[in-house]
């Protein structure tokens, strides 16, 4: 039976919080970004799409390294924050949140981009001609017709954030309650040769990852058959 220590619970709560925040932020910025990529005409689209997809091929440590340089006290962003009397973002929850958002970006943008591309612009244009403003169109036309894409984007971003390790370790250190997420804790348990604890948490993540993929494929199947 799985028995978790208080520090395990701290990490689980932190991981879930990170996953939820990341997913929320990604949906909020990923939706307009994916829409722009799918329907815009700017010549910059290809470049932006490549940048968004970078985390797919980049080692997470590279991302973590640059974020550390950027967000740390000597970095451009971290330094500016210090200059106005705030703390820099390295080794903070905000820091790993920024890393997660960037790192999981393709997993939110790609499914939305595909859903928006498949939707096309016709329905949205018709809705506009019928008097629906942009927000109205989003909730009454785009969202209902690309629901599958949103479900997939949300589950994948959430799950991918849970699996993140390298970037978080680089930018976050492994500070309990702030940046020590499940994957880092598992690594720590293994290094301390506490295999029972490492096992339990690993199993938990394994089961969760399976569940997420199951949902994604089930949603895919369902919306494939229902879509006109």
């Amino acid at each position: 039976m799985i028995e978790l220590s208080p520090s395990d619970w701290v990490a689980i709560r932190l991981t879930l919080k990170l996953g939820l925040y990341t997913t929320g932020i990604l949906l909020a910025i990923g939706t307009p970004l994916a829409w722009w990529l799918a329907s815009g005409r700017s010549p910059l689209r290809t470049a932006v799409q490549s940048i968004v997809a970078l985390p797919l091929v980049l080692p997470p440590t590279v991302l973590g390294f640059y974020l550390l340089l950027l967000l740390g006290p000597r970095g451009w962003i971290g330094g500016s924050l210090e200059a106005i009397g705030l703390t820099h973002l390295a080794f903070t929850f905000t820091g790993i949140l920024i890393a997660s958002v960037i790192y999981s970006m393709p997993f939110a943008v790609q499914p939305l981009f595909q859903a928006f591309t498949a939707l096309g612009r016709r329905h949205v244009e018709v809705a506009a001609s019928l008097g629906a403003g942009p927000i109205d169109r989003f909730f009454t036309v785009i969202l209902p017709l690309t629901r599958g894409g949103f479900i997939i984007a949300a589950t994948l971003s959430f799950a991918h954030t849970l699996g993140e390790f390298g970037a978080i370790l680089m930018i976050g250190g492994s500070i309990p309650g702030r940046t020590k997420v499940l994957s880092v804790l598992i690594y720590d348990h293994a290094e301390a040769m506490n295999y029972t604890a490492a096992h339990q948490l690993s199993l938990l993540l394994l089961a969760f990852a399976f569940l997420v993929l199951f949902i994604v494929y089930a949603v895919n199947r369902r919306f494939d058959t229902v879509r006109p």
Binding site: L68, G72, P73, R74, G78, T87, H88, A90, F91, T92, G173, S174, I175, P176, G177, D188, E191, A192
Partner: peptide
């Protein structure tokens, strides 16, 4: 009270980069 273990070199780099 929390303790974080790691290699001394990495810890030093982290402290130089503002680790708390």
């Amino acid at each position: 009270i929390e303790v974080i273990y790691g290699s001394s070199g990495k810890m030093t780099t982290q402290i130089l980069n503002g680790a708390p």
